[in-house]
Nucleic acid binder design. Structure first.
Lengths: 324, 324
DNA sequence: TTGTAAGCGTTATCAT
DNA sequence: ATGATAACGCTTACAA
């Protein structure tokens, strides 16, 4: 920006950034010059001076194939995250880092000062990345409680309580043989949802019946067949994802079981399909948007040096439709 | 990097960048200091000096929901792109820009000098973004031929010829009533694949039978039912995506039609599912990886000021399995 | 309120 | 082959 506006670059900088008071008249003149010249501050120079980049990365640690699966979770999370960051004038970028080489690159990228903060998506098992980043001073926040205990802040829902309450609702509705199709047991969501189910059943003195899926529709089909073979007497199922629930309901229909008359179904997620399934699915809603926004607020706070809660829990809600 | 290594920063810079000759002994000492101090060059400072960022963005212009659909196309493209860029020492970032506000942000981001180049994903209809970016001097390359004529370089397959050849194969196999399930007609892939089908049929003096889907599995189910109702006599179908083909084959099975005995099916994409469908799907393979790599090479060349082909076509292949 | 000037951490030019 | 030194374009004390 040649100060062809007629003023010093300090002044120009002030009006660009809205920092400090500038005489309204000057402000106007400078603004006009900016518009005419189509001036955009050079981010590299700005970063160099401010020690910030205003860029935050959402890191995709899972294999692309899973991230890009037809799950609605990630897209919504990214939207919530992006919107909230944008309100703060920050840019969200997505970066893929699904193997050791990718991790190393990301770490260098972040350490190098390319990033003001990093948001890590849910990950399988224990993962060295968050701690590594935190150690080198990069603000990090996790989407979902990590399996390994760590002091990196995270945002999540209370899977266990949510499921416990949903199963209690089934019990109160008079269901007496309640099974579950659980998720993968190397993910916190999979583990905790199963725990919630077990707790509710134990409290009621009922016997758990457990099968496992991978959160996908296809795995729901398989698990449901298994369940039908091994425990045909069940009259309710808590299914750890809506996708699996959809697959399971199809199997039940084909087997001639009426939902909810013969068997009640409760899912988890409240994806779009829950509204349109046959019958519409009673399910536990995760406020995914809000999770994303909370993630954004946390990492921004971290960057600004404000202290943040190490764990943020956003509330779920049992959405009652017709399947239970 | 305090030149605690004992040498000037010019020298340090040289060994870091491997530019020009440096005495091996000095090189070693400096490298050791770098390792010990865990030194990473500051990218902002580097960008400021070099006028490069070494960052390239893959822009996702479609609604997230489509990008994140269970199509394998984008993930593979991103992988091919990322791998090739990495070989050149560049970083790939993904940015979402699906509404006018997002476009504006991206444009500012790019113009600001944050990006060395931009790769735009396939887009519906005509899109002002590529031209806008090119106009302000940002290297741009398109994944897929744009609907509007433009001089922005693009990389694509030859949908039309690929489909024409596939349909000719059906004709040579003795099929006499060949229908198609076409893709969306606001996307080049959808349009050109339909054109190829029409061309082959016209050349053989046969009558086209056309239905439309959205490239998704569910839309394939719907289109197939429609087709069965309107033209039960068909003995072959070219289906413009494997996903739709999978849906269609399910409907055909339920209707008691044997594949390929009663009806031959050819899909498009050669996604993973093509190998595992029942029966395995004969389909047109798009070398998606290679598309991504070509995209990378093109944008890199553009950035370096080398002249590039305005259109790059990568070859497809008819993969014969059991459905035709 | 505005301007001056000193960084910010590199790379690149030019002597040496 | 190496070392000074001047950019690179911005923000921010500090001075006026």
């Amino acid at each position: 920006m040649a100060e062809l506006s007629g003023f010093s670059r300090a002044t120009v900088s002030r009006v660009v950034n809205g920092t400090r008071r500038v005489a309204p008249e000057i402000q106007e003149v400078v603004q006009k010059a900016i518009d005419e010249l189509n001036y955009v501050p050079n981010p590299a120079a700005r970063s160099l001076a401010t020690q910030r980049t205003d860029c935050y990365a959402f890191v995709i640690t899972e294999a692309e194939s899973r991230f890009f699966s037809d799950d609605e979770f990630f897209p919504r999370l990214v939207k919530g995250l992006g919107d909230e960051l944008e309100r703060a004038g920050k840019q969200l970028i997505l970066v893929l880092a699904h193997d050791p080489a990718g991790y190393a690159r990301l770490e260098k990228y972040a350490v190098g000062g390319h990033l003001d903060g990093v948001i890590l998506g849910s990950m399988h098992g224990t993962d060295p990345l968050p701690a590594a980043l935190a150690r080198v001073g990069v603000p990090v926040v996790l989407s979902g409680r990590p399996l390994a205990t760590s002091d990196v802040p995270y945002v999540d829902v209370d899977h266990r309580s949510a499921v416990r309450e949903a199963v209690e609702y089934l019990i109160q509705s008079g269901r007496r043989a309640i099974a579950t199709i659980a998720g993968p047991q190397d993910m916190v969501g999979g583990l905790e949802r199963l725990d919630g189910y077990r707790e509710a059943l134990a409290a009621a003195g009922m016997q758990p019946v457990v099968t496992y899926g991978e959160f996908t529709r296809a795995s729901g089909v398989v698990a449901m067949r298994e369940l039908l073979a091994k425990a045909p007497e069940i009259d309710a199922i808590f299914i750890a994802s809506d996708l699996m629930a959809e697959g399971a309901m199809q199997v039940l229909r084909e087997a001639g079981r009426r939902i909810p008359e013969d068997i009640a179904i409760i899912g988890f997620d409240d994806m779009e399909l829950a509204k349109h399934s046959d019958p519409p699915l009673t399910t536990i809603r995760q406020p995914v948007f809000e999770l994303g926004a909370a993630l954004a607020r946390t990492v921004l706070a971290l960057k600004e040096g404000r202290t943040v809660e190490q764990v943020t829990i956003v509330p779920t809600q049992l959405v009652r439709r017709e399947s239970a």
